[in-house]
């Protein structure tokens, strides 16, 4: 099943090079100066996470903030964004397909919505990333020990590679962990499915989510297609009238319903070794 074609490195480079342009505006409640500060334009790596631009935002907006402790969070269409989903997948799920460039987000530094979001403390993003990587390692190798036994220093190195989107260094570091050669013929897949418009009324209730380990050695090749996997995971059908109103996107690339995921996985897996699939209402409709 391993495909080591000549195009693989190019695909990998292009995949990792992907970024989402963000236009960050400070929420009016937290503006203490007249006139309000200029918005901030940044490029956030698709495989990274939103909080990684927090430092830059704080530098830009810090001077106008009211007194208090800085706890950064982002809001889109009046809904707080979950920071543990990779930026690219978030963009694809919530805003992609509608051609809104750059992605306009509101940034907050005060009144963290503790009831809606998981608290973000210290290096919480890094911890979340390694947790996800651990799960992937278990699906791929049957054991998460390769991640658990990482030293603090190599953890830091790997995380820096993710933040800076340096694919070559990342994979050379990762190769030491025997994660690239799976021992079990399974792949980890995460599916986010949005049926409706994402706004402050629907919010995250409109998004369905599933994590799945897909067995590659299935006799039925149909099981490995996108259609089959989605059917099994979330009961989402891509056929018929319902299917025509949906599109499936991975890493910003629209996939056909009969695409074999076993072939897609090696190219479009994220930094945490998960393949993120986004199902959203079709932009063509």
């Amino acid at each position: 099943m391993e495909t080591s074609s000549a195009m693989a490195p190019d695909i990998q480079r292009e995949h990792w090079r992907g970024s989402v342009a963000l236009k960050l505006e400070l929420h009016p409640d937290e503006v203490t100066t007249v006139p309000p500060p200029e918005p901030l334009f940044v490029l956030a790596p698709r495989l990274g996470y939103l909080p990684q631009v927090a430092e830059q935002a704080l530098e830009h907006f810090g001077s106008v903030l009211p007194p208090g402790e800085d706890e950064v969070w982002f809001e889109y269409q009046g809904v707080p964004l979950k920071w543990h989903i990779p930026t690219g997948s978030l963009f694809d799920l919530l805003a992609g397909g509608r051609g809104g460039y750059p992605w306009c987000l509101t940034v907050h530094f005060r009144s963290y919505p503790r009831d809606a979001l998981q608290p973000l403390e210290g290096d919480g993003v890094q911890a979340s990333y390694f947790n996800s990587l651990k799960e992937a390692a278990y699906v791929l190798t049957g054991s998460s020990s390769s991640v658990m036994t990482l030293t603090k220093a190599s953890q830091q190195e790997l995380w820096q590679n993710v933040l800076e989107a340096k694919d070559e260094e990342f994979f050379s570091n990762l190769s030491k962990m025997d994660l690239t050669r799976p021992t079990r013929s399974r792949i980890p897949v995460r599916v986010y499915c949005r049926e409706k418009v994402f706004d402050s009324f629907t919010g995250w209730k409109s998004v369905e989510y599933a994590s799945k380990s897909v067995v590659l050695d299935s006799e039925d090749a149909e099981d490995l297609t996108l259609r089959g996997v989605l059917q099994r995971c979330l009961g989402v059908s891509l056929d018929g009238e319902a299917g025509s109103g949906r599109e499936v996107v991975a890493a910003g690339v629209e996939l056909e319903s009969d695409t074999n995921l076993a072939n897609v996985y090696p190219h479009l897996k994220n930094a945490d070794m998960w393949l993120y699939l986004v199902v959203r209402p079709s932009s063509r409709a």
Partner: peptide, 13 residues
């Protein structure tokens, strides 16, 4: 994949 990624990056990046 390559072409669509390139298209994507050309547009987004």
């Amino acid at each position: 994949l390559l072409s669509s990624l390139r298209k994507r990056n050309a547009l987004e990046v």
